[in-house]
Design a protein around this nucleic acid. Structure first.
Lengths: 165, 165
DNA sequence: AGGACTATCATTAGCAC
DNA sequence: AGTGCTAATGATAGTCC
């Protein structure tokens, strides 16, 4: 039977959140590293946090730049066009790149055993939205960053608004 | 005692590699998602592979763009200079970053946050070096990317501390 | 607060289909 | 090839120092 599932929600307690962040960030970076090593593929990860003045990146700032250059080379139109909207039973909006759409469908169709919910690549559920909001708070708090949300949302109307379901 | 450790090396068998890739990519995306949700932080991941025409990203192409914009806002020079180098037990390489203090100040002055002291958190161990090489092989095949690998090595000749606190 | 430990839960490699 | 299962390894939340 399914054992107790970890509660996927923002950890309110500050010290507990920080402790978890540290552990999981480390674990995440290891996972990226392993995926890349085992499968010989190109990947990068960037993690911002209030705990570090600079983002933690994998594999390196330049490695990230390289992957990003590749990513940005995709015309924005393509990025949009290649995306597919799907709906699940809870009426949550999902956006998936076409390359993985089939996989997503399969997983959803099969029910994916006990690992439902977050599932495959891009799946924004309520907690995620809350989380986006947290991110915004984080970013808006100290920085002189532009507010990317407005831009992003206006740029293409279909990305779900993080503040509403 | 430590049990048998998973061999962290490129999986030679094609089908086994693809199967592992699929599983681990899914697991990785879930991890990113969870980290972000649990800790309310901003993160993104990009995974290229020969199996998908488009990279798989988290949280979304535009979410990635946003994080990238933030990342790219850091001038490259500072990205390099800001790296703090440490030595670990295996690698005896240690390189001091000359202008670190200066660069740190600049960035902190930009209002990036009140937490000071840390440089880039970069995890890179021996496996990752190997892994970089694999990536290079991968990219060299199809792309016309610049080769940052050599640059990075020549420029710094260091590999940062795999342990961070 | 920051390790270190460890019981418990999560991921996944290997297999059968 | 892809899917489901499960033993085995891996990650980590909670705890103690």
């Amino acid at each position: 039977m399914t054992r107790k599932k970890v509660k996927l929600a923002f950890i309110v307690n500050d010290s507990a959140r920080k402790a978890t962040f540290k552990k999981r960030k480390k674990g995440l970076m290891k996972k990226v590293s392993e995926l890349s090593t085992l499968c010989g593929i190109d990947a990068c990860a960037i993690v911002y946090s209030p705990y570090d003045p600079q983002p933690e990146v994998w594999p390196s700032p330049m490695g990230v730049q390289r992957v990003l250059a590749k990513f940005r080379r995709m015309p924005e139109l393509e990025q949009s066009k290649k995306m597919v909207l799907t709906k699940n039973a809870q009426s949550q909006t999902q956006v998936a790149a076409p390359a993985v759409t089939d996989a997503v469908s399969k997983i959803e169709d099969k029910g994916q055993g006990s690992h439902s919910g977050q599932g495959f690549d891009i799946n924004m559920d309520l907690m995620q939205k809350q989380n986006w909001f947290m991110n915004l708070m984080n970013n808006g708090g100290g920085g002189n960053e532009t507010m990317p949300f407005g831009d992003v949302n206006q740029q293409n109307g279909f990305w779900p608004n993080p503040f509403f379901h």
